[in-house]
Design a binder for these strands. Structure first.
Lengths: 223, 223
DNA sequence: GTCTATACAGGGATAGAC
DNA sequence: GTCTATCCCTGTATAGAC
């Protein structure tokens, strides 16, 4: 015990030696990042805690130290990807756009976000296969309401008032439809490619799909 | 080798003793059924061969006897659910329906099939998370083209000729969109319910969704 | 064709030193 | 806060009898 003193003194006198890799926040963050990767690649059951620790460059024991269990880490990983999309949604500025232009932005955003975030899709798919048990258990996640739905609602109202959109549209169902036409293309890209015998993963297919999605959804909204 | 003769003779003289529970085909079928259940509930990695054998009411060793490995069984399970939907699709008779009515049938069918077959959705999701590795490895699966897409194409053409549908529609993209607005609702029902704070799994929500889906897709198709 | 028993590896989780 | 070592269960797969 007496041997601790020198160490303590050193720590006290030079508390933030920048070399320190004993950085709790950074370690946590590295683990969450690695977890998102591994869980999205392999699902909850297929994911390996060993692998997550290895990729994060830390000892496996720290997973249990910080997150209690594999499940605990999974929940934080899920919260993390939701937090990220919410942040991007907040940043959407539709400004003074005309309803049709605003709607085009909204549809394009939901397409682009999914295109750029396959890990989000993979985690959602896994969470749903598990009956949404984590999202239901997390008050924090349930409180993370999407600003997207309100933007959609407002745009819809403005457009209806101007006579450019139909009146009888439920915003939640519209949201699900807009998200769905993009989501299904990405989430099932492999099986769709195999069944149709052509690669839907190419850049060309992506561009073509984006155009179709926007046109399809806008058409559906016409009065 | 000589001892085979009596058995052969017996088989020839009484080939179909109905009492037999040593029925290879039935055993196989029970295993595939149980596999579809277990794999859809838990994914490939989470599924337990023990559990599949238990539910099928047979010994675990038979899984390896008939299917070589867990993967082999998974592939057959996947082929099985695809075969089922293809069969139902074949049975769709659009007869002499007007294009709009025929399209309504097609959209309704894709909605209803997904509503009634959550195991199909779950297996597809898992297969896609695994990069479609099984479907790519199976010539049989890749050859299982959907008749749905051709029905869609023909209906689209007829409608365009009559001026009730747009002309510039790609059948594959349209298929993905029609399937997507239904699929996403079911595949992500749990997370959507949690985020919107209302149960989308209820019978009422289902009926409402079905109406929306048909209306949304038909609107999108108007010229 | 079906069963029992078991080999063998892998992985979640914990103990305890530093 | 981080590391090494290890426990112990579970799950795939196989051997071999009947």
């Amino acid at each position: 015990m007496a041997t601790l003193t020198p160490t303590r003194a050193a720590a006290a006198s030079a508390p933030k030696k920048a070399t320190a890799r004993r950085d709790a926040a950074a370690t946590r963050e590295a683990l969450v990042q690695a977890a998102v990767d591994e869980f999205s690649r392999s699902g909850f059951a297929g994911a390996r805690v060993d692998e997550i620790a290895r990729v994060a460059g830390v000892n496996k024991q720290l997973v249990y130290h910080y997150f209690e269990s594999k499940q605990g880490l999974y929940l934080v990983a899920l919260e993390s990807v939701y937090a990220q999309i919410r942040e991007k949604e907040q940043a959407l500025s539709l400004g003074a756009l005309e309803p049709v232009d605003a709607m085009t932005q909204l549809i394009g955003f939901s397409f682009d976000y999914l295109a750029e975030h396959p890990e989000f899709i993979a985690l959602l798919a896994d969470e749903n296969r598990n009956q949404g048990q984590h999202i239901l258990a997390s008050e924090r996640l349930k409180r993370m309401h999407s600003p997207f739905i309100e933007m959609l609602e407002r745009t819809l109202e403005r457009g209806a008032a101007q006579g450019v959109f139909r009146r009888d549209m439920d915003a939640v169902h519209l949201y699900i439809s807009i998200a769905g036409i993009s989501y299904f293309f990405f989430s099932n890209n492999h099986t769709l490619s195999a069944i149709f015998g052509k690669s839907l993963g190419s850049k060309g297919a992506l561009v073509q799909r984006r155009r179709h999605v926007i046109e399809f959804a806008l058409n559906a909204l016409r009065p």
